[in-house]
């Protein structure tokens, strides 16, 4: 198998496991990253099992408890409808984390597909596709997402009687997710450009490697080259790079809520709770404190874990 002989010190598809194990060992030694990971795990578990963890449902409340401070029954207090803040925070984690994860995933899928195609086919295809990316790079993301969100919300999240077809299907998804769906879509559609560039760059460098050239020379089919050589080399770093973007997507959701393009109440999200709460800061501090803390702690944990993962996968940084 001479054509797959790895060069010295080069990471190839042949030894992903040992590399991963190596990285994992380095990661586990990083206490900050481990702590971040542990916190995230708790939050994710709470979000997934919200139905069992949360003491109340998201709509359950007594209006007489409106804006009530912490008590035995409601340890984090109540919101304007007398609904339990803790429960809404736990259920809100679902939306905010999904906004981060699914937004990142959407961007990942689009970006990787785009980058793979451009990098792998090269030539004219590559040229046209990357010019398109360049153009979209100059597009003010903010404006694009506001226009897109307004457009989506007007076209698909419409009233009353269910409709058929594509429009109806999208509208039903949107309703089922409390308006989340379009947030994910909007975030994803405006955030894939960096990923596309990164992946294309990696594909090009992998394609240039001797063993890939060799594989091609002996007539290995394209699909097999893609599967055996390109994908394994590209996916790992791409996943890491995209995971590092997740905190940004969580903040993005908060920002969209602030400008009125967030989830539909009464569905809670951290961003929605935050933008409901900041107005009341000096009167009902708990309304802003908990969602802000939830976002901050999550981002903190993500960032420490992210830095740890990056250090772990890039061993040069820890050597001195």
């Amino acid at each position: 198998m001479a054509r797959r002989k790895p060069q010295s010190g080069e990471q190839t598809s042949d030894k992903p496991r040992s590399l991963g194990r190596d990285a994992m060992r380095r990661l586990l030694k990083n206490r900050a990253a481990v702590a971040g990971g542990a916190i995230l795990l708790v939050i994710v578990l709470a979000a997934v099992f919200a139905d069992f963890v949360a003491p109340y449902s998201i709509t359950e409340g007594n209006i007489r408890n409106n804006y009530a401070g912490p008590s035995a029954a409601h340890p984090l207090g109540c919101d304007f409808m007398g609904r339990d803040m803790l429960s809404r925070l736990i259920f809100g984690a679902r939306i905010s984390l999904s906004a981060g994860l699914i937004g990142a995933l959407t961007a990942f899928v689009i970006g990787v597909t785009f980058g793979l195609i451009a990098g792998f086919f090269g030539g004219k295809t590559d040229n046209i596709m990357m010019r398109f990316v360049d153009i979209m790079y100059s597009f003010p993301t903010l404006l694009l997402i506001i226009l897109l969100m307004v457009f989506f919300k007007s076209s698909f999240s419409v009233s009353g009687v269910a409709e058929g077809g594509f429009r109806g299907a999208l509208s039903n998804i949107d309703r089922a997710t409390g308006g989340m769906f379009f947030i994910f879509l909007g975030i994803g559609l405006t955030s894939w450009l960096g990923m596309a560039r990164l992946v294309r760059g990696m594909v090009l460098s992998v394609r240039g490697k001797d063993y890939v050239e060799a594989a091609r020379a002996v007539g290995t089919p394209r699909s097999q080259i893609l599967r055996r050589h390109v994908l394994p080399n590209v996916l790992g770093p791409a996943i890491v790079a995209q995971a590092l973007q997740i905190p940004g997507f969580i903040l993005y959701e908060a920002f969209l809520s602030f400008i009125g393009l967030g989830v539909n109440p009464p569905t809670p999200s951290w961003g929605m709770m935050l933008s409901e709460g900041y107005v009341a800061m000096r009167s009902h501090f708990h309304l802003v404190l908990w969602p802000a803390l939830a976002i901050s702690i999550t981002l903190f944990a993500f960032n420490f874990l992210g830095d740890g993962v990056r250090d772990a996968f890039d061993p040069r940084q820890t050597r001195r």
């Binding site: 307004v150 919300k153 007007s154 999240s157 009233s159 009125g260 539909n264 109440p265």
Partner: peptide, 9 residues
């Protein structure tokens, strides 16, 4: 089903 739209829309 409670929902909202931007003013112009």
């Amino acid at each position: 089903n409670i929902t909202n739209q931007e003013w112009g829309v």
